Simulated scan of single mutants.
Amino acid sequence: MLKSLRFNLEDASQIIIGSFALAIPISFSEEAWSLSESLPFFNIFLLLLLSFCFLSFYAYQSVFQANIKYKQVAFIFRVFIAYLMACVVVALILLAINKLPLIDETMIAIKRVIIISMPASMGAIIVDGFDKE
Protein backbone atom coordinates (compact mmCIF):
# COMPACT_ATOMS: atom_id res chain seq x y z
CA MET A 1 0.00 0.00 0.00
CA LEU A 2 2.75 2.49 0.86
CA LYS A 3 4.53 1.97 -2.47
CA SER A 4 1.55 3.50 -4.32
CA LEU A 5 1.55 6.50 -2.00
CA ARG A 6 5.16 7.45 -2.67
CA PHE A 7 6.42 9.40 -5.64
CA ASN A 8 10.16 9.11 -6.13
CA LEU A 9 12.90 9.72 -8.69
CA GLU A 10 12.15 6.41 -10.41
CA ASP A 11 8.52 7.46 -10.93
CA ALA A 12 9.61 10.86 -12.23
CA SER A 13 12.10 9.31 -14.65
CA GLN A 14 9.46 6.86 -15.93
CA ILE A 15 7.02 9.73 -16.54
CA ILE A 16 9.67 11.78 -18.33
CA ILE A 17 10.81 8.88 -20.55
CA GLY A 18 7.23 7.83 -21.34
CA SER A 19 6.19 11.33 -22.31
CA PHE A 20 9.38 11.89 -24.28
CA ALA A 21 8.83 8.69 -26.29
CA LEU A 22 5.44 9.86 -27.57
CA ALA A 23 6.15 13.58 -27.68
CA ILE A 24 9.14 13.34 -30.03
CA PRO A 25 7.41 12.12 -33.20
CA ILE A 26 4.38 14.36 -32.70
CA SER A 27 6.45 17.44 -31.85
CA PHE A 28 8.17 17.17 -35.22
CA SER A 29 4.82 16.95 -37.01
CA GLU A 30 3.68 19.94 -39.02
CA GLU A 31 0.08 18.76 -38.53
CA ALA A 32 0.39 19.35 -34.78
CA TRP A 33 1.82 22.81 -35.39
CA SER A 34 -1.03 23.66 -37.78
CA LEU A 35 -3.68 22.35 -35.39
CA SER A 36 -2.43 24.76 -32.74
CA GLU A 37 -3.06 27.64 -35.11
CA SER A 38 -6.51 26.56 -36.32
CA LEU A 39 -8.20 24.64 -33.49
CA PRO A 40 -10.70 26.71 -31.47
CA PHE A 41 -10.28 27.02 -27.70
CA PHE A 42 -13.30 24.82 -27.05
CA ASN A 43 -11.55 21.94 -28.83
CA ILE A 44 -8.31 22.62 -26.97
CA PHE A 45 -10.24 22.53 -23.70
CA LEU A 46 -11.87 19.28 -24.81
CA LEU A 47 -8.43 17.77 -25.50
CA LEU A 48 -7.29 18.88 -22.05
CA LEU A 49 -10.38 17.33 -20.46
CA LEU A 50 -9.95 14.09 -22.41
CA SER A 51 -6.31 13.92 -21.35
CA PHE A 52 -7.25 14.08 -17.68
CA CYS A 53 -10.09 11.58 -18.14
CA PHE A 54 -7.87 9.00 -19.83
CA LEU A 55 -5.00 9.60 -17.40
CA SER A 56 -7.37 9.15 -14.47
CA PHE A 57 -8.93 6.02 -15.89
CA TYR A 58 -5.57 4.39 -16.62
CA ALA A 59 -4.07 5.39 -13.26
CA TYR A 60 -7.16 4.13 -11.44
CA GLN A 61 -7.19 0.76 -13.20
CA SER A 62 -3.49 0.08 -13.68
CA VAL A 63 -1.38 2.08 -11.25
CA PHE A 64 -3.80 1.92 -8.29
CA GLN A 65 -5.58 -1.31 -9.33
CA ALA A 66 -9.04 0.20 -8.73
CA ASN A 67 -8.26 0.77 -5.06
CA ILE A 68 -8.06 4.44 -4.14
CA LYS A 69 -10.22 4.32 -1.03
CA TYR A 70 -7.38 5.55 1.20
CA LYS A 71 -5.22 6.98 -1.59
CA GLN A 72 -7.32 9.74 -3.19
CA VAL A 73 -4.65 12.41 -2.68
CA ALA A 74 -1.93 10.18 -4.12
CA PHE A 75 -4.18 9.33 -7.07
CA ILE A 76 -4.96 12.97 -7.87
CA PHE A 77 -1.31 13.94 -7.39
CA ARG A 78 -0.12 11.15 -9.72
CA VAL A 79 -2.52 12.20 -12.49
CA PHE A 80 -1.68 15.89 -12.26
CA ILE A 81 2.07 15.39 -11.92
CA ALA A 82 2.08 13.06 -14.94
CA TYR A 83 0.28 15.68 -17.03
CA LEU A 84 2.41 18.55 -15.76
CA MET A 85 5.67 16.69 -16.38
CA ALA A 86 4.50 15.71 -19.87
CA CYS A 87 3.76 19.38 -20.58
CA VAL A 88 7.25 20.36 -19.46
CA VAL A 89 8.82 17.68 -21.67
CA VAL A 90 6.70 18.78 -24.65
CA ALA A 91 7.56 22.44 -24.06
CA LEU A 92 11.28 21.65 -23.89
CA ILE A 93 11.15 19.64 -27.12
CA LEU A 94 9.22 22.40 -28.90
CA LEU A 95 11.65 24.99 -27.56
CA ALA A 96 14.59 22.92 -28.81
CA ILE A 97 13.18 22.75 -32.34
CA ASN A 98 12.15 26.43 -32.28
CA LYS A 99 8.41 25.71 -32.43
CA LEU A 100 7.36 27.24 -29.11
CA PRO A 101 6.60 30.92 -29.86
CA LEU A 102 6.06 31.95 -26.21
CA ILE A 103 6.85 35.63 -26.70
CA ASP A 104 5.41 36.30 -30.16
CA GLU A 105 2.35 34.02 -30.12
CA THR A 106 1.75 32.90 -26.56
CA MET A 107 -1.68 31.37 -27.19
CA ILE A 108 -0.40 29.26 -30.09
CA ALA A 109 2.47 28.05 -27.90
CA ILE A 110 0.07 27.03 -25.11
CA LYS A 111 -2.29 25.34 -27.56
CA ARG A 112 0.64 23.49 -29.13
CA VAL A 113 1.77 22.19 -25.74
CA ILE A 114 -1.77 21.03 -24.85
CA ILE A 115 -2.26 19.26 -28.20
CA ILE A 116 1.03 17.37 -28.03
CA SER A 117 0.73 16.71 -24.30
CA MET A 118 -2.35 14.56 -24.78
CA PRO A 119 -0.51 11.55 -26.25
CA ALA A 120 2.67 12.39 -24.32
CA SER A 121 0.86 12.24 -20.99
CA MET A 122 -0.65 8.87 -21.88
CA GLY A 123 2.83 7.55 -22.64
CA ALA A 124 3.96 8.96 -19.31
CA ILE A 125 1.29 7.27 -17.21
CA ILE A 126 1.59 3.97 -19.07
CA VAL A 127 5.33 3.74 -18.48
CA ASP A 128 4.82 4.87 -14.89
CA GLY A 129 2.35 2.01 -14.37
CA PHE A 130 4.66 -0.75 -15.63
CA ASP A 131 6.28 -1.60 -12.30
CA LYS A 132 3.31 -1.17 -9.98
CA GLU A 133 2.10 -4.17 -8.06
Score class of each variant (00 low, 15 high):
123 G>M: 06
43 N>W: 14
13 S>M: 05
106 T>N: 11
48 L>M: 13
112 R>N: 13
26 I>E: 07
120 A>N: 09
50 L>Y: 12
33 W>V: 01
71 K>P: 00
40 P>G: 13
78 R>I: 07
12 A>F: 14
95 L>T: 09
70 Y>I: 08
78 R>A: 07
42 F>V: 09
44 I>Q: 04
81 I>K: 10
57 F>N: 06
61 Q>M: 00
66 A>T: 02
112 R>L: 14
109 A>E: 08
18 G>M: 04
128 D>L: 15
6 R>V: 12
24 I>A: 04
89 V>K: 04
37 E>A: 15
91 A>K: 11
37 E>Y: 08
133 E>H: 06
5 L>M: 11
69 K>N: 08
89 V>L: 06
28 F>I: 14
41 F>L: 15
114 I>H: 00
129 G>W: 04
87 C>V: 13
49 L>P: 01
93 I>Y: 05
96 A>S: 04
37 E>M: 14
98 N>K: 15
65 Q>L: 02
10 E>Q: 07
31 E>W: 12
123 G>H: 10
54 F>P: 00
66 A>Y: 01
72 Q>N: 13
3 K>M: 05
55 L>Y: 01
126 I>V: 14
27 S>P: 06
52 F>D: 00
25 P>E: 13
65 Q>V: 00
63 V>D: 03
58 Y>K: 08
53 C>W: 12
22 L>Y: 09
110 I>Q: 03
111 K>M: 15
42 F>C: 05
20 F>N: 01
106 T>H: 11
62 S>N: 05
128 D>G: 03
41 F>Y: 13
109 A>W: 11
15 I>F: 05
78 R>D: 06
60 Y>T: 04
80 F>S: 12
27 S>F: 12
45 F>M: 15
98 N>S: 14
14 Q>G: 08
24 I>T: 11
53 C>K: 02
124 A>D: 04
23 A>H: 06
96 A>R: 02
116 I>K: 12
67 N>V: 05
97 I>F: 06
118 M>F: 14
108 I>V: 14
129 G>P: 01
14 Q>I: 07
115 I>K: 00
68 I>R: 02
69 K>F: 01
76 I>D: 08
102 L>V: 12
38 S>C: 04
105 E>T: 10
126 I>S: 09
121 S>E: 07
17 I>G: 01
65 Q>E: 01
